[in-house]
């Protein structure tokens, strides 16, 4: 190797060594920003006005999200068209047995900080989350630099076409006394129609069979199970970014309707019929994912006998 070649080699080696830590650091920061959104969205009180656009239609919504004594009170009011109000209360994800924020989403998505910008009058980082496979969608987030709250989210499909756009036009972060006056009485708030976690476990364990999801996209793990008051079972899976739900309907003597695939904006739903012990069950998968992915998940769901049951939540916690 000549002297000139040696110098060139050292130059290239030095450039690679210098650039690698910078890239890794930037990627880590982008992922941290996104992972922090999980906690911030549940810890912060805020109120504001956002627009939601899908399928060529835009709606403006006023929202209040107040955290008080560990409970979250949400009020959503439509600003366009018919007057619609929605009140919701949640007391945290107590039925969940895995922290979604601990998942290694970097294995399945690429995180990039695009630039800095302003949304709703606040400084934001714009972060792109690109899937590494064709089984899931990508996202563009605008994350508040000061609080870590997501102020804009755009869901894009594999072709780069936006499927929805959620964006705050105005937001006030922090508890606002006036907003508490919006809350008439706790009884008016919706709560998830599920029993408590202990009875969930009991109900799931007392059945002679369980349902098994045979295939999920790599990286998705089950994070919650619920049994609704009318006996429907639901499970939630996440890869740290996207969430999909599985719903097992109550049994019926005959299929209620044929299997179907439906979509509302970016949300894909696939319903299939399963037969077990002379009973018919509607099995549904719902989430922001391509139809092929949702169909494959749905068709992998099968009833299993008791001795083949999946590990219960306690064992998953360990």
């Amino acid at each position: 190797m000549s002297k000139k070649q040696s110098i060139m080699f050292l130059f290239v080696l030095g450039w690679v060594c210098l650039s690698m830590p910078i890239n890794l650091s930037a990627q880590q920061t982008a992922h941290d920003l996104v992972a922090r959104m999980f906690d911030r969205s549940k810890q912060l009180s805020y109120s504001g006005l956002f627009t939601y656009e899908m399928a060529g239609e835009q709606r403006t919504v006023k929202v209040s999200h107040q955290v008080s004594d560990g409970a979250v009170y949400e009020r959503i009011t439509h600003m366009d068209g018919p007057v619609k109000d929605r009140l919701r209360q949640s007391v945290g994800n107590h039925c969940n047995f895995r922290d979604a924020s601990s998942l290694q989403a970097q294995d399945y998505y690429r995180f990039d900080i695009l630039d800095e910008s302003r949304v709703a009058g606040r400084e934001v980082h714009r972060v792109r989350v690109s899937p590494k496979d064709s089984l899931r969608y990508g996202y563009l987030y605008a994350i508040d630099q000061q609080t870590g709250l997501m102020l804009q989210s755009m869901l894009v499909n594999q072709s780069g076409q936006p499927l929805e756009n959620f964006k705050y036009m105005d937001i006030s972060i922090g508890p606002v006394a006036d907003d508490l006056s919006l809350i008439a009485s706790p009884a008016e708030f919706e709560t998830p129609t599920s029993s408590d976690c202990a009875s969930d476990l009991q109900a799931l364990g007392s059945r002679s069979f369980e349902w098994s999801v045979g295939w999920v996209p790599p990286g998705f793990v089950q994070v919650s199970r619920r049994v609704t008051e009318d006996g429907r079972k639901s499970m939630a899976y996440t890869d740290g970014i996207a969430v999909f739900s599985v719903l097992i309907d109550v049994p019926s003597a005959s299929p209620v309707h044929p299997g179907l695939s439906a979509r509302l904006g970016p949300t894909q739903m696939v319903v299939i019929n399963r037969e077990h012990d002379d009973s018919h069950y509607r099995v549904a998968v719902s989430g922001q994912m391509p139809q092929a992915t949702a169909s494959r998940i749905a068709l992998s769901i099968k009833p299993v006998v008791a001795n083949q049951r999946e590990p219960d939540m306690e064992s998953l916690n360990q």
């Binding site: 969205s41 956002f50 929202v63 919701r88 949640s90 997501m150 989210s153 919650s224 996440t238 969430v243």
Partner: peptide, 12 residues
């Protein structure tokens, strides 16, 4: 409960 996107699920 499990997502990272705040109010977006309700907006949908």
């Amino acid at each position: 409960d499990n997502g990272i996107q705040g109010m977006l699920p309700l907006a949908r």
